[in-house]
Design a protein around this nucleic acid. Structure first.
Lengths: 189, 189
DNA sequence: GTCTATAGCGCGATAGAC
DNA sequence: GTCTATCGCGCTATAGAC
């Protein structure tokens, strides 16, 4: 693996450890040891442990926000938009399996950036629900509580970081299709 | 709220705090303060912070194990068994919204009990997959990768602890039916 | 059963040499 | 850019008075 910079190496190494034990249980000494340097040396590249977490989470949250924007702007059917959202999660997660753990589990340890993160997350969930609601109105989706549908799909998509790494030989494109099928059409014959 | 014992009160209070910040970020002083006593006094009732976590997680894991046993032993159709699993998760989560956060996010901080927890979890997932595989063989379920189906359903069920508390006025029985419908039949019209 | 006091340790972060 | 040394603090847990 190669890194853009020493700072980038710190962030990526930290993400691996954060996934294993959570942000709070990982020490600066742990991160430094993993890189073969001393904890004090980390501070030549980053300002605080907090900053490492922020960089991991905010960068991912912004990727989701940006790509959701182009999905919702497109003029496809609601079902096709949902399939694109599935692909979005599979793609980002397959490239950031460690960071996705922090995004899901350690966001509450953000400090200055917490309100910004919460805003991005709320907007994302609203966009998701709007797509579902339009699908119901257009008679593409069943007439059921849209909150339940958003919850169900999003829970699965947010858990991909746990599951994808266990299937390393996975064909990403094939998996995306299978998962879309299960999420949208169910498992009943 | 009432407690069986002072120890029970410690466990339930801790679960609330563990859900908010995670096991590692909660201190014995935090727990004591929430109960209006000093941290040292906690040790009259429990032996360690570890023990609190173990009690929360293992008790829940054993409830799932026990109830899965009676579901898999029954002679219902695979689809009805899946509906019962949905009901199982909704029921346990609605009664233990705080503890379920620890079960999902802090199991890696178990020490002596970690292997036991992992065994229970693995058995549970195997039972779940066996039900799905029988459903496919019996032509009740679509012929798709059973791992994907287990992952998708279980991810949603495991995330209930995040979502149920936000819908406090929820009719549990109605919600169970809606969720089963979405998980089994999908959202496509 | 709760308290005060504290042991013993590890934490995040800084100073300053090289 | 990394090191050694260390500050100041908060952690889990224990001892012993009441």
């Amino acid at each position: 693996m190669k890194y853009d910079s020493r700072k980038d190496e710190i962030i990526q190494t930290s993400a691996i450890l954060f996934k294993k034990k959570g942000f709070s249980a990982v020490t600066m000494r742990d991160i430094a040891k993993e890189m073969g340097i001393k904890a004090a040396s980390l501070y030549n590249h980053i300002n605080s442990k907090q900053e490492i977490l922020s960089e991991i989470i905010i960068s991912l949250a912004e990727q989701f926000t940006e790509q959701m924007k182009s999905i919702k702007m497109s003029d496809e059917s609601s079902i096709d938009k949902l399939k694109q959202i599935v692909a979005l999660h599979v793609n980002i997660t397959s490239k950031n399996q460690f960071g996705m753990a922090s995004l899901n589990n350690d966001w509450m340890h953000l400090e200055a950036q917490l309100p910004y993160y919460l805003k991005l997350r709320k907007n994302y969930e609203n966009d998701f629900r709007n797509i579902i609601e339009k699908g119901i109105k257009d008679n593409e989706l069943i007439t059921q509580n849209p909150d339940v549908m958003v919850f169900s799909m999003l829970s699965t998509l947010r858990s991909l970081y746990i599951w994808l790494p266990k299937k390393e030989d996975l064909d990403i494109e094939k998996f995306t299709t299978e998962l879309s099928l299960v999420l949208i059409n169910g498992i009943n014959k």
